[in-house]
Design a protein around this nucleic acid. Structure first.
Lengths: 242, 242
DNA sequence: GAATTAAAAATTGTATGCAATATGCAATCA
DNA sequence: TGATTGCATATTGCATACAATTTTTAATTC
């Protein structure tokens, strides 16, 4: 049966604007703490206030926005305390993903991860950060996919969206980058042998190390100094080329 | 400074109706699959459609409701597959809570949990199920509190809210009840010695056993046979006295 | 010039209205 | 009798209106 014969997919305005706004926040379009006035957003998106307000409520319940009665929406900040809360939870979730992935991964999926890994390592060797982080993220996403637990994926995605909003000026140093690559090497090995317990431990450690990197950057006041959009990923902090 | 001098707490209609409706769903007021027409809910709560619609959107993003364009809100169902997804995630989160609690718990908190535990055991010896489950839940909540990670608590609470909506006819058998009590004994011991790793393992096992109980009840078609509100808790399935 | 007050403007929360869509029921056809 | 069609009714999505609250600006006082 062709695609033409299936049901016609529909998306409400509310769903569309929720997704759009979420992406914009996660991508750093609005810095932490910034006000999001309804009227401005309605003009930006060309819609009425009703679906926009519904979207704001949903994003607030996801932790991306802060709402207080009569005070409008504000992009939630990210403090070192927030980071200290988020990373252990994400670590636990990613460790579970690792265990489940080892139990459920197909040979094809494993080969895909391996291919991504070696491309990523090549970029590290060449010192190419943007493609490195891209591949790095893909690997983590593939592991979550291989876990085949949508509830887990949703929970993890929601939390990681909050982290990706942070902004920093500093790249991690070469030592930490090399360490991250080594951790990825261990991860691949554990996946290869389908050793779920081991992969879980590696992922937890990996996340702990990332937590320290993020906090160090926060402590350096990097968030306030940053003027450009920056994206955090696992093993490095990417500064887009202007 | 007295309470009178602090800021005046305000709650929007939206927040109030969201919380009310969430509680009603979690408590089983609306069976899985049931339609929640806007007009009916507006009459029930005595409010206009706007804050109600906003609440529906939030509860949908929490997984308690299902929304599709032009089809209104439906209470989300809970299948064996859902249960298979939820419990490992909850297990991972509760294991993390156990680790963090062992690192952070005060002597006072530990004494509180111990007191709750022994009361609970007494109810088990007397075969008193309602108070047993109440205390049981309090113990789990105390452990989460002792973990001092609001993000973790929020994530766990959201997931556990979905499970509490299930309904069943069967009580667990005496063997499983005794097993659950034994697991709680182990939990208290691990807490006492502040052995986070051990507590994490016990909690994971505890959740796995609970998962099997829930699935068995689901498989028995208990959900459809149930006519009265029933609440699942850890170690038994409580049928309220009519 | 700083502090205070009042007024104007902007923003937010909620209610209501209108159009589009879905559902239910009755009539018609094969 | 079952299937199809048409119409009426109900429900949902979104826009708009109104009132309440907050913020900003201007005027006044010390």
């Amino acid at each position: 049966m062709s695609q033409l014969a299936g049901p016609i997919a529909r998306q409400s305005l509310h769903d569309a604007v929720t997704a759009r706004l979420r992406d914009m926040i996660v991508e750093g379009e609005y810095p932490p703490g910034s006000r999001l006035p309804e009227r401005v957003l309605c003009e930006t998106f060309g819609i009425s206030r009703t679906p926009l307000r519904e979207a704001l409520k949903v994003l607030a319940s996801e932790g991306l926005l802060e709402l207080a009665p009569n005070r409008g929406a504000r992009v939630a900040g990210l403090t070192a305390d927030d980071v200290d809360e988020l990373f252990p939870v994400m670590g636990a979730l990613e460790a579970l993903a690792g265990e489940l992935a080892c139990a459920r991964i197909t040979d094809t999926e494993l080969a895909e991860i391996r291919a991504l890994h070696y491309q990523m390592v090549l970029h590290h060797k060449r010192g190419e950060r943007p493609p490195y982080f891209d591949l790095n993220q893909q690997i983590h996403e593939k592991i979550l996919e291989a876990a085949r637990n949508p509830t887990l994926t949703a929970s993890y995605t929601n939390l990681s969206g909050r982290i990706r909003r942070a902004r920093y000026t500093a790249n991690i140093d070469a030592a930490r980058w090399a360490q991250a690559v080594a951790e990825h090497e261990e991860m691949l090995e554990a996946l290869d042998t389908r050793d779920g317990g081991r992969l879980a431990e590696i992922l937890k450690r990996h996340l702990r190390n990332k937590c320290e990197t993020v906090k160090a950057a926060l402590a350096a006041g990097a968030e306030e100094a940053a003027k450009d959009k920056m994206v955090i990923t696992d093993d490095k902090i990417f500064i887009p080329t202007p």
